[in-house]
């Protein structure tokens, strides 16, 4: 099986609200996955991960996760990240309510 090309984003939870945020190319945080920087170079990804992690008074639980390039920006690969960028399925709460 051929190895998939490296394609990841940095995500975390905001420290105060706890909601899902993404690290942008400008090294800032956005609530919208479309603003996330999609890394294809593992070295750049790790460097930005370290930078994101240094933002301890703003964020919690920073990590790198697989994403693909979509029409409007990065899109999640795994269903867990799909739920994170949407919100729970039993109520119209979370991002699906806030970003619409």
């Amino acid at each position: 099986m051929s190895k998939k090309p490296f394609s990841q984003i940095v995500t975390a939870n905001a420290l105060i609200e706890g909601d899902v945020i993404y690290f942008t190319a400008q090294s800032t945080w956005s609530r919208d996955i479309a603003d996330a920087e999609l890394f294809t170079d593992p070295d750049r990804a790790n460097a930005q991960l370290a930078l994101a992690n240094s933002d301890q008074s703003v964020v919690a639980g920073v990590y790198l996760v697989d994403a693909t390039a979509g029409e409007d920006g990065p899109e999640p690969v795994h269903f867990r990240e799909d739920f994170r960028m949407t919100g729970p399925s039993n109520y119209h709460h979370g991002k699906q309510a806030e970003l619409s």
């Binding site: 939870n13 706890g18 639980g61 739920f83 919100g87």
Partner: peptide
């Protein structure tokens, strides 16, 4: 306090960080 330092304190008081919020 970093998140790693804070986490045991918040857990002792019943506070988790979940997918969309605390």
């Amino acid at each position: 306090l970093t998140e790693d330092e804070f986490k045991p304190f918040r857990l002792m008081n019943g506070l988790y960080l979940q997918l969309h919020a605390y």
